[in-house]
């Protein structure tokens, strides 16, 4: 390869508007994160197998002992969907944190790739991973007797609320991943998020909980999303809780997007 040919091929293209370049970077980074996700075999197995095991455990091991007014499988599937989505999204903290410990980030920085592009790549890959695992959980749930009464609009609403929440949690997790000193520390966050599903109506009705806990359990973000998903799928009254779910998600997204930008630039 002659020097001349190299030089000819590498003339930088004429400057485009910054927004076009930024959008191109985001696309490139989404492609990167999706490819890396697909190739992380153990990551994919965890993302797919764990939710299904969790659901089977609740339905068959605990389901017999729990009285919820409706068939437990119908009661618990929305909760399981959320736990899975929450767990899957929270692992973004680990992927971002370990990504930041690799040398490739320095190269991105020195190439002027923005933190926003990098994080967006991780977040979009996370949402894609979770949509796949959610679809799988729903398929297995239908196979073991989950019979939702929702029509097309109900399903769309449920998927929309879940996807929005996954997006919010993924972005929050990415932000945590930037702050965390190590992937191990980031991993702790995954447990915290998974834990939030327990003081909620995901597995047992809230009125069976001690009274001092009920207020928190009812208003915390995970519960609002669980209730909305359950109501849209089982045809129950949706009410204002859906708005709470959407507002929580949008709030978390807004806070995380701005915080992650600042934190990424400050790090390193």
């Amino acid at each position: 390869m002659s020097e001349l040919a190299l030089a000819e091929a590498t003339r930088r293209p004429a400057p485009r508007p910054a927004i076009v370049d930024a959008a191109a970077d985001v696309t490139t980074m989404i492609g990167r994160s999706l490819r890396l996700s697909l190739r992380s075999v153990d990551g994919m197995i965890t993302a797919l197998a764990l939710p299904i095991m969790l659901m089977l455990m609740f339905v068959y091991l605990f389901g017999g002992a729990l009285r919820t007014g409706i068939a437990y499988v119908d009661y618990v599937v929305p909760g399981v969907l959320l736990v899975c989505a929450g767990f899957g999204a929270a692992t973004t903290a680990v992927t971002v944190s370990s990504d930041l410990t690799t040398g490739v980030i320095d190269r991105f920085r020195s190439m002027d790739v923005s933190g926003a592009a990098l994080i967006t790549g991780h977040v979009v890959a996370s949402v894609a991973r979770n949509l796949v695992s959610t679809a799988l959980v729903v398929a297995v749930a239908l196979a073991i007797g989950f019979r939702p009464s929702a029509g097309v609009s109900g399903w769309l609403a449920a998927v929309g609320v879940l996807a929005l929440f996954v997006l919010a949690l993924s972005w929050l997790s990415a932000t945590i991943g930037i702050i965390a000193g190590s992937p191990e520390a980031a991993n702790g966050f995954t447990f915290f998020v998974s834990f939030l599903a327990y003081p909620s109506s995901a597995f047992v009705p809230i009125d069976t909980m001690p009274s001092w806990l009920r207020g928190f359990a009812r208003d915390q973000p995970v519960n609002t999303v669980v209730e909305t998903t359950r109501a849209t799928l089982t045809g129950g009254p949706v009410g204002s809780v859906a708005w709470h779910a959407v507002l929580w998600s949008l709030g978390i997204i807004a806070a995380s997007v701005s915080a992650s930008g600042v934190l990424f630039n400050r790090r390193g």
């Binding site: 191109a24 490139t28 890396l36 190739r39 690799t102 490739v104 320095d106 020195s110 790739v113």
Partner: peptide, 27 residues
């Protein structure tokens, strides 16, 4: 351009994919 002490590459991407990604990031 900076090449550091530790390889700044994605292990799970091929050599070709890594280089193409850099090209895309240079627009």
């Amino acid at each position: 351009s900076l090449t550091g002490q530790y390889a700044a590459l994605d292990e799970a991407q091929t050599g070709e994919e890594n280089l193409r990604m850099m090209g895309r990031l240079l627009h």
